[in-house]
């Protein structure tokens, strides 16, 4: 018997910079895989998805309007905050049966990955923008521009690293997102919301929901105010459903099924570009 009774955390969702419970007031049990109780997580409904998309859309204008330098600093700040709460995340990852060494590596890689994408915010237009030598008296340039609200479906494995690998490239350039956390391993994602809250990320830029996939995926993928989808779930049927539903409003869909979330290939500006539109501007050159 411990000397002191531990204070346990109630895991909620992270929407619009707040930590509401699911509007449905339902929860479900998260276990360590051996049916030992870890916590109850919110069992979000389609209305939670609706609210999260609304928050995400509201946050888009402001986040998009930030300078690239500022967004880079905010992403870096997330990494700083995470570094300070390393132990919390290592312990949380261990609850699901991961060994200390692996958990620590996951947290470290996640922090470094944030820093990687923080550095891209003010370079992506330089590397992937162009000045186009048109054959007329016009100045013409193209630059990448955030696409808007992105729906993200996280995988079950490496619930901190994968979530950060998906969120960072999306928000780096001014997009906002709604993330459906892993159904079985949602807790690190929810705790990551607390880190975001503490690190200058404006409310609504990242929204994190938990719950049963079959109750949220349909709504998320068909929602017409979402501009793009990033799917990292291994479930092929979900991928197909997302493709189909995306066609309702011509969403961009990126199926991103990773074998190894620790691999350096996830540090990749081309993933950032998937959530950017190329905008081309013409102007006459005359006196």
């Amino acid at each position: 018997m411990a000397d002191r009774i531990e204070v346990l955390k109630t895991y909620k969702t992270y929407v619009g910079g707040k930590f509401p419970r699911s509007e449905s007031d339902r929860t479900y049990r998260i276990t360590d895989g051996k049916d030992n109780h870890i916590a109850n997580a919110c069992r979000c409904s389609r209305k939670d998805v609706r609210d999260a998309v609304l928050a995400s859309r509201s946050a888009f204008g402001g986040w998009y309007a930030r300078t690239a330098y500022n967004r880079g600093q905010v992403l870096y700040r997330i990494a700083e905050m995470l570094e300070g709460r390393k132990d919390q995340f290592v312990n949380e990852l261990k609850l699901s049966g991961v060994k200390q060494k692996v958990a620590l590596n996951e947290v470290h890689t996640a922090i470094d990955r944030l820093i990687y994408f923080a550095g891209w915010t003010d370079k992506i237009s330089q590397v992937f923008g162009t000045v186009n030598p048109v054959a007329s008296a016009h100045f013409n340039f193209s630059s990448p521009d955030a696409t808007g609200v992105v729906g993200i479906i996280a995988p079950d494995e490496h619930p901190l690293l994968s979530v950060i690998s998906l969120i960072a490239p999306v928000i780096a350039t001014g997009n906002t997102c709604v993330l459906l956390a892993s159904e079985t391993n949602p807790l690190p994602a929810v705790s990551f919301g607390e880190v975001l809250h503490a690190s200058d990320v404006p409310g609504g830029v990242v929204n994190i929901l938990t719950g049963y996939r079959n109750e949220t995926v349909e709504t998320l993928t068909s929602h017409k105010d979402i501009n793009a989808l990033l799917l990292a779930s291994r479930d092929i049927e979900t991928g197909k459903l997302a493709d189909e539903n995306a066609s309702l409003s011509v969403k961009r869909v990126v199926q991103y099924r990773a074998e190894d979330w620790f691999s350096g290939e996830h540090e990749n500006p081309y993933l950032v570009l998937e959530f950017m539109e190329t905008k081309t501007t013409w102007h006459p050159v005359g006196a």
């Binding site: 008296a137 016009h138 006459p284 050159v285 005359g286 006196a287």
Partner: peptide
């Protein structure tokens, strides 16, 4: 007051 004229457009 100057009335704006775009040279390229005129051409």
């Amino acid at each position: 007051q100057t009335i704006p004229i775009d040279q390229v457009g005129v051409e």
